[in-house]
């Protein structure tokens, strides 16, 4: 052991040993400690703690209110969204209706026009057919006449007198066949 330590121990022993065990200072410490504790207790319990408790309660109230307000706003936003969605759906239905109506009208007109066109086409076709039939009839007549004439000419050329009636009958029979 170093002698320095010994002198320390001696010095400490010389003064008071451990200061913590110097009973002469105990009344002083205890007195001032009690004074301190009483002051702290009254300061805390009378001023500080009620104040902090009040602030905390107030804050809790404010937070609760704010949350309620936020909840309300959220509800409102939801309602607005619903209304918007409904309006959108309605508009869509309306649009579809209008579209359908327009389509039906167009279809009707189209049908009408088509019917008219069909009728016209039919009429024209009939006319054309009639004309064709006339032309054809005309043509047959002409052929008959030409055939008769030709036959007559051939017969006369061959020297025999042509019987008009027989020629006509023969040509007609031939034409049918």
């Amino acid at each position: 052991m170093a002698s320095g330590t010994e002198t320390t121990a001696d010095a400490a022993q010389g003064s008071s040993g451990m200061p913590q065990l110097d009973f002469a200072t105990f009344p002083n410490q205890i007195f001032w400690l009690v004074v301190t504790l009483v002051i702290i207790y009254f300061v805390l319990s009378r001023i500080a703690l009620p104040r902090i408790a009040g602030v905390l309660a107030e804050r809790q109230g404010t937070i609760t209110n704010d949350i309620a307000a936020a909840e309300e706003l959220k509800q409102k936003a939801k309602e607005a969204e619903e209304a918007y969605n409904q309006a959108l759906a309605e508009a869509r239905v309306e649009a579809q209706k209008i579209g359908a109506e327009a389509k039906a009208e167009i279809q009707k007109e189209l049908d009408k026009a088509q019917a008219k066109a069909d009728a016209e086409i039919a009429a024209r076709a009939a006319e054309s057919e009639k004309a064709i039939a006339e032309i054809r009839a005309g043509a047959v007549e002409s052929v008959k006449a030409v055939a008769k004439d030709t036959t007559k000419e051939i017969l006369s050329a061959m020297g025999s007198k042509a019987d008009a009636k027989a020629v006509t009958a023969a040509v007609t029979a031939r034409m049918k066949g």
């Binding site: 320095g4 330590t5 320390t8 200061p19 110097d22 002469a24 009344p27 410490q29 205890i30 007195f31």
Partner: peptide, 30 residues
């Protein structure tokens, strides 16, 4: 000489003057 006084910091002494420590004395504890 290496001198240790590890416990000197705990000594209770009067703040003013050098008298004895009575119960009402204003000390460093106070």
């Amino acid at each position: 000489g290496l001198v240790f006084h590890p416990l000197d910091q705990f000594i209770v002494k009067p703040l003013f003057g050098d008298g004895a420590v009575h119960w009402y004395t204003i000390t460093n504890v106070t």
